[in-house]
Amino acid sequence: MSDSILEARSIEKSFGGVMAVAGVDLTIRRGEIFALIGPNGAGKTTTFNLLSGTHALDRGAVNFDGHSITGLPSHRIAQLGLVRTFQNLQIFGSMSALENVMVGCHLRGRTGFVAASLRLPSVAAEERRIRAESLDYLEMVGLANRADDVAASLPFGKQRLVEIARALAAQPKLLMLDEPAAGLTRPETESLDDLICRIRDSGITVLLVEHDMNLVMGIAERVAVLHYGQKIADGTPAEIQADERVIGAYLGLDWDGARDYAFA
């Protein structure tokens, strides 16, 4: 088993004439929390979509856990153990919180059309098992008491937690969180910190795309910075905080003022 779980080599994507991602290399090591940061429009979410197969690559290659996932559809990538959440929530609103998480268990279920049609005994057994496991995942994010609530009726912060529980239910090797702190209150962000660390401690590698500098600098082991579709720096949080190009990218040319602002 190699040291890195994901390697992206010179990945590229353009929309119309705009180069959203222009030849980015990334290496994510097993068991770490890796953060991808950058100003608005830097190509963070696009990079994310390329890695998860939501968008097709124009050029470049991605290896995940010993497999080439270049050009694979996203359900195949998920099957290999790379599972993501979404910045603008993609919750299944009409389902209960529990059912949302049960969809997350999809890959570990076997019931197909025929078995389901006839409601074979194996179906009921699997259903019970998945229900119990899904409750455990809701418990992990602190939502066990809201299991039967319709997902759309939950407050925004809780919906985000449902999405994380749903992704965890797929038992990923690499969990990719797209701006998990966006729109959360201060206390919610703090408990999110804690949750992400617990996820890492359970053996899941985490890739974060994030705006919230405090969250990133507090928990990430390594950080990569994107600017105009290119990687301008990567390293430990301390190295990133000292990198003048990063500060410049965030706030223009006044290094000292920018640093104070960006990492306040």
């Binding site: 998920a78 993609q90 919750i91 389902m95 019931t111 409601r119």
Partner: peptide, 26 residues
């Protein structure tokens, strides 16, 4: 039976958000 099963959940997931369903391996 189909509706109240793993298959039915997958179908409803596709209905609401195909990208999210795909991202979970559906």
């Amino acid at each position: 039976n189909v509706v109240n099963s793993r298959v039915g959940r997958a179908l409803r997931a596709i209905h609401t958000s195909e990208v999210a369903a795909e991202a979970l391996g559906v």
